[in-house]
């Protein structure tokens, strides 16, 4: 009885987590709070669904193209938001990312029209019996892929040279530059990885819903909430909070009712901002904020 909502919760929580870490990555490296993160979810899903519609192209290739398109759009975004505004007040940057979100949404609306599209799952949808409950392979696939990607990102950030350079840039960009790190290039890489991951999230959720221009909006808002709950600047913390949020939401939806399901995330977010602004796992609200 509890297994099914738990698995669904883990699946959607994995998506929230994927978006939360991608959101924090750009924030940490460049200081940009990307309010357009959700739109890259939609871009990835739309491109993949269009390419998949062309006969003869395997689904996996379409998916990779979708991710690539999202990453490419992210690099373009870096050029129009971060590059011209990096020394301006943070308010300009916030508004600029909101504007990018509007542009992406409207461009998608013009290109793909108002009718929802579909994107098949990369794995066949089969229900399997697990401890007496029926759970879907699509959900399991979502959980596995997001877990693998988040762990991989964490390893890249902590164990590789690129990761150390990104970390150095996030701690002190000027010093990093003096040490010979090409911070400008690293910011571009961070944007590409971040929006690429958002594209992955789009391709993963698209089979559960349908592909519309609003696909990523609510997911991104939930991911923002998860970042606040888990603690800014703490990638694993935000990921854990995001998964937890997905589970709590789904259990609440099953046992209490769907009415207040969406309120939980934002209610918790505001409660945390008031009582514990550093989040569950964060040490302190950083000066960078």
């Amino acid at each position: 009885m509890i297994i099914q909502p738990l698995v669904s919760g883990l699946a959607i929580g994995g998506i929230y987590a994927l978006l939360a870490v991608s959101f924090l990555l750009t924030y940490r490296v460049s200081g940009v709070l990307n309010f357009a993160q959700g739109e890259f979810v939609m871009v990835g899903a739309f491109v993949a669904s269009t390419v998949a519609g062309i006969a003869g192209i395997p689904l996996i290739a379409a998916a990779l193209l979708g991710v690539g398109a999202a990453a490419f759009a992210g690099v373009a975004m870096e050029r129009v938001t971060y590059r011209p505004l990096r020394n301006k007040p943070h308010a300009s940057m916030i508004i600029s990312t909101v504007a990018v979100g509007i542009v992406l949404t409207q461009a998608a609306q013009l290109i793909w029209g108002p009718n929802p599209r579909t994107l098949p799952s990369l794995v066949p949808n089969v229900s399997i019996d697990f401890l007496g409950s029926r759970i879907s392979t699509v959900s399991l696939f979502l959980i596995v892929i997001s877990a693998v990607l988040i762990v991989a990102l964490h390893l890249v950030l902590t164990k590789t040279r690129l990761g150390r350079q990104l970390e150095a840039t996030s701690v002190d960009s000027d010093t990093a530059q003096l040490m010979g790190i090409r911070t400008g290039r690293l910011v571009i890489i961070a944007f590409a990885i971040s929006t690429g991951l958002a594209g992955v999230a789009g391709i993963l959720v698209a089979p559960m819903f349908s592909v519309t221009v609003g696909l990523g909006v609510l997911i991104a808002l939930k991911a923002f909430a998860a970042c606040v709950i888990g603690g800014f600047g703490n990638l694993p913390g935000a990921a854990i909070a995001a998964v937890g949020l997905g589970v709590v939401e789904n259990l609440a939806g099953t046992f209490i009712g769907t009415d207040s399901k969406d309120l939980i995330a934002f209610g918790l977010m505001i409660a945390f901002l008031i009582v514990r602004p550093q989040g569950i796992f964060g040490a302190k609200v950083g000066e960078k904020l």
Binding site: I94, L221, F232, L263, F266, I274, V285, L289
Partner: peptide, 27 residues
């Protein structure tokens, strides 16, 4: 409570507030 939050964080808090109100209106 938002006083303790600087710049970016306040934007997030107000964003969340707007969502809460919008959801209450519907639900």
């Amino acid at each position: 409570p938002s006083l303790r939050l600087r710049g970016n964080y306040l934007a997030l808090a107000t964003l969340g507030f707007g969502q809460v109100v919008a959801l209450i209106l519907v639900n």
